[in-house]
Design a protein around this nucleic acid. Structure first.
Lengths: 191, 191
DNA sequence: CGTCCTCTCTACCAACTGGTAGAGAGGACG
DNA sequence: CGTCCTCTCTACCAGTTGGTAGAGAGGACG
């Protein structure tokens, strides 16, 4: 069944459940069954459902962060950083939509879960803001960039939701749609 | 607590629960408690939870339809129909965000619930497509308009989700954001 | 060998889920 | 008055929820 550790398989199954049906609608038994294990094994690796949610959130944030950093580092010489990030986000939306949709699900659990998400994102957000603002930016400028990044993040998640919705409604994303969403994201980031 | 009938109060409470926390995460007891009544009273008015979901969906679709028709009928002379619809949608997003978010929640319950939603929307969608395409449009043209309307609907719901997300993330919608979303929606509808 | 540690299991639990059965309050109407 | 009808209630039910308690398998290591 897998080279992946039990813990990793639990995280993957929980991510899918949380993103596809919602956190509250995904039971520990559901997750365990998807992994092929008993609920108590899930509770061995994560001491409570809240801990599982936190684990999924931080794993997802990590994976997103790593993918974006790799895209920035490996971009073609001369290519705009913002464009590299946007293109990687669109690729992620196609490859791992759950990663993006999860954000939306977590924010609905109330302030404490949203805080967990915020904690996981904060360091990467800060790093990205500082990098984008440049070395001699004032704190106010960095703050403005940070805010713009957050707003762009909301747009990204909304775009992922739109793609999901279109698929459900039998009008799946087209190439033209992708192009327009790319332009929209670019505008949101550099606007 | 009300001039509204028990049935209407149940529908309102269920709509809020479904939109804010998800259908599966909102129990009949939750709905009943919000109304100030017992679960069995809810089950008197709606014979099952599925029936309640259907009731909420068709009430929401009705309300949306009525609001949009009124906006079209009451638009300033010479004002574009599409612009009137877009502006009304944005107003609805501010006034009744749950109405829009509900669509997203229902589509996650699987094909049968999505079919219920489709049934509720179909007649209004058809009417709107015929009206927009004009009296001597070919069936193919009407079909193309219908498709464009569906795509625009997905964009509308995504926009409502973005607004909700921004609020949760402490970067609430601004006037500039609203303006850009209005332009985006106009482009989606007439592009 | 024995002892520890890692991991998954069976067996529970109280609380809550959607749903059924049926009583009874209160008005309308003959 | 009595008999409906409308509406909400109490009392249940079996199944599922997140979570606890603890047994046991299997390897690592002295």
């Amino acid at each position: 069944m897998s080279g992946a550790s039990t813990r990793e398989r639990i995280l993957a199954a929980a991510l899918e459940g949380f993103a596809r049906r919602g956190v509250e609608a995904t039971s520990l038994d559901d997750v365990a069954a998807a992994v092929g294990v008993r609920k108590q094994t899930v509770l061995y690796w994560f001491r409570s459902k809240d801990a599982l949610v936190s684990g999924v959130v931080s794993a997802a944030v990590d994976e997103l962060g790593v993918a974006l950093e790799a895209a920035v580092a490996g971009r073609r010489p001369g290519q705009d950083v913002v464009a590299a990030v946007v293109d990687e986000v669109l690729r992620l939306g196609a490859r791992r939509p759950d990663l993006l949709v999860l954000v939306r699900e977590v924010t609905r659990l109330g302030p404490s879960a949203t805080a967990t998400l915020g904690d996981a994102i904060a360091p990467r957000l800060e790093g990205a803001a500082v990098a984008l603002a440049g070395p001699d930016a004032t704190p106010a400028t960095v703050e403005a960039v940070r805010r713009r990044l957050l707003e762009a993040g909301a747009r990204v998640v909304a775009t992922a939701v739109e793609a999901e919705l279109r698929t459900q409604m039998a009008v799946p994303p087209t190439r033209a749609w992708l192009r327009s969403r790319r332009a929209d994201l670019l505008a949101a980031l550099s606007g």
